[in-house]
Amino acid sequence: MNRRRRAAVLLLSAFLLLTATGQAHAAGYRYWSFWEREGGDWTYATQGPSLARPSDGDVQGFRFAVSEDSAHAVRPRGRADFADICADTPARKGTKRVALVLDFGTAADAPSGERPPARRTACARVAPDATASEALASVAKPLRYDSNALLCAISGYPEKGCGEQIAAGGERSAKGAGTSSAARDEGDGDGGGPSVGLLAGGALVLVLAAAGVWQARRRAR
């Protein structure tokens, strides 16, 4: 009986470790990420929109989604060409034009009870020294910020919340969003396969289980 109990304890410990690993991997944050267009690709901005000062002809993007961190943030979708976005906004002396891509994300990443607006683009014509925040405010009011100047809402979306953490088994899981936005969006990176931590945890379960069985058989001889 003691041998069986020891084997059971080993298996239970491994299961709890695997569960914790999966939960840590699934945690993320719901927020607006800020992007800059460089050479036909999106690059995560190194400055916030209140500090970044785009040049005339720049393309910048905003994407609302649940992401683990900046390294795994979800990019804006769709085409992002300055000539197309600003085709109907002629240049004017003493101003600059900035093309903006506003991607409000998917229903899976939306806060409870809210529906994301359709993705859209806009051409902001602003003063030469205007920041990205000022360009955004000229075409997508109302904006909402928290006390730390974190951008919380564009055009009033979402109505509440700001960078809140979404834990494993929380609201997103209840909505059936079993994969991240990056996995659902075409061309946005990895295909949403199991994480290295999850695979390692699974391997540990097998190793501990085999060790428990071997130990029980060895002592039974």
Rank of each mutant, 00 (worst) to 15 (best):
R79D: 15
T106K: 08
A83F: 09
L51R: 10
E68C: 09
L100F: 06
A65K: 03
E36W: 00
E68Q: 14
A71Y: 14
R172I: 08
A110Q: 04
P90K: 03
Q47D: 12
V66M: 07
Y145E: 11
V59I: 12
N148K: 13
R120N: 02
D58M: 05
P158Q: 09
G161D: 00
V59N: 07
S112G: 05
A168G: 07
E134A: 03
G105L: 09
S55A: 12
D103R: 00
I85V: 15
A130S: 06
L150W: 11
E114G: 01
G105E: 05
I166F: 07
T46Q: 13
Y157D: 13
G105F: 10
D41W: 12
A168V: 03
D69M: 10
S173K: 13
P142E: 01
G163E: 12
A99T: 05
L100R: 07
E114Q: 15
L150V: 14
S70H: 13
A73P: 12
C86R: 02
T89G: 01
A130L: 01
P111V: 08
L100E: 05
A127F: 00
A80N: 04
A108Q: 13
S138R: 05
K141I: 05
P90Q: 13
S133W: 07
A87V: 04
R63A: 13
G170D: 14
L143F: 09
G105P: 06
R79I: 02
A168W: 11
A99L: 02
K93D: 14
D109P: 06
A132L: 05
S50R: 08
A168D: 12
T95E: 08
E36R: 14
A110E: 05
S133Q: 10
P90F: 06
S55G: 09
K93V: 11
C162L: 08
P54C: 07
R97Q: 02
T121Y: 00
A65M: 05
R77S: 04
A73C: 09
A108M: 14
H72S: 15
A168C: 01
T121D: 03
E38I: 13
S173P: 00
G169K: 11
C123M: 04
V101I: 08
T89C: 02
D58Y: 05
Q165K: 15
G39E: 12
S173N: 06
V126I: 08
P142T: 02
L102Q: 02
D109A: 11
A137V: 03
L136I: 06
P117K: 08
A118Y: 01
E164F: 04
I85M: 01
K96N: 04
G61C: 09
P54N: 08
D88C: 02
D81W: 01
A71R: 15
R115Q: 15
P49Q: 03
A167N: 06
A149P: 01
R53S: 14
Q165V: 15
F62T: 08
G170P: 01
A118Q: 11
A122V: 04
G156N: 10
P158C: 09
S133C: 00
A124D: 01
L151I: 06
P158D: 09
G170L: 02
P111F: 08
E134T: 08
